[in-house]
Design a protein around this nucleic acid. Structure first.
Lengths: 132, 132
DNA sequence: TGAAATTGTTTAACTAGGTAAATAAAAAGA
DNA sequence: TCTTTTTATTTACCTAGTTAAACAATTTCA
């Protein structure tokens, strides 16, 4: 077994766990934050736009958006096409956003602080190249 | 949000999905294969040794080993310390092993075929450095 | 020695990914 | 037009990770 893969998976779990630690004080999980971040950047989106952007299957997004709705951070409304549901941030989410963003930025900086800017670019390049 | 993290998570999901595709013909999932591989390499191990090695929590291993036992690929027997259970491969697992290993090796080679040996080492180095 | 602390495993309940199949609305075509 | 196909979402069920808490066996130590 190529040790690169083992290391990659280890690193993934480490990152996700630390990310969830960071989000804990806001009562959020990483996948919830990912959706909030996307909606903040792009504005209201349909579920399909979300899962296509994130490269994840539809049921995953249905579930996480439902959870965010229960938390009062997101609203769903019917689109012109009555099949689709448009998801948007609530005022509470918009108010919460900068606090979480700040924590996340600090976290991300800490995570890559051992790498120079050049090394970060190299890592991104190698990851992208791997996929083909 | 540092795009490095987004890319990293995308790449992770891509890898796991392709890995599970590869294992599908054997009726296995990636975490099951990981444990089989470890036992093949190290010989019989206690549950605690397994989860410490894999850097995962104990209940995850309890569950996956139970599944492997049901599949007839693994046996659990009491250790000298009667709290611990020693997990070992069954003859069926030992017979199955080289076939799966072969598929996995082909898969792994394909996944990194865009990278030179040097780039692979660099990637491993950068991943390790990231964690700190 | 016997009480307290630690260790190994398990159970329960949560998030987060996947596939398969159902349903309703819209679009396409004969 | 109306039947068929496609699209958007959801439901159900699987693997796989997490934490918290329970339990039994072992170790520690007063």
């Amino acid at each position: 077994m190529n040790p690169l893969f083992h290391m990659f998976f280890q690193q993934y779990r480490f990152l996700v766990n630390r990310l969830n630690d960071t989000l804990k004080e806001f009562g959020l999980y990483n996948s919830q934050w990912t959706i909030l971040f996307l909606l903040h950047q792009e504005g209201p989106m349909s579920l399909t736009s979300i899962w296509k952007y994130l490269n994840v299957e539809a049921p995953t997004i249905t579930r996480t958006v439902a959870r965010l709705e229960k938390l009062g951070l997101v609203e769903r409304q019917q689109g012109d096409d009555r099949r689709e549901k448009i998801v948007s941030l609530t005022p509470e989410a918009i108010e919460l956003f900068p606090k979480v963003e700040n924590s996340i930025m600090t976290f991300e900086e800490k995570m890559v602080s051992n790498l120079t800017g050049e090394e970060q670019e190299q890592l991104a390049m190698l990851l992208k190249k791997m996929k083909g």
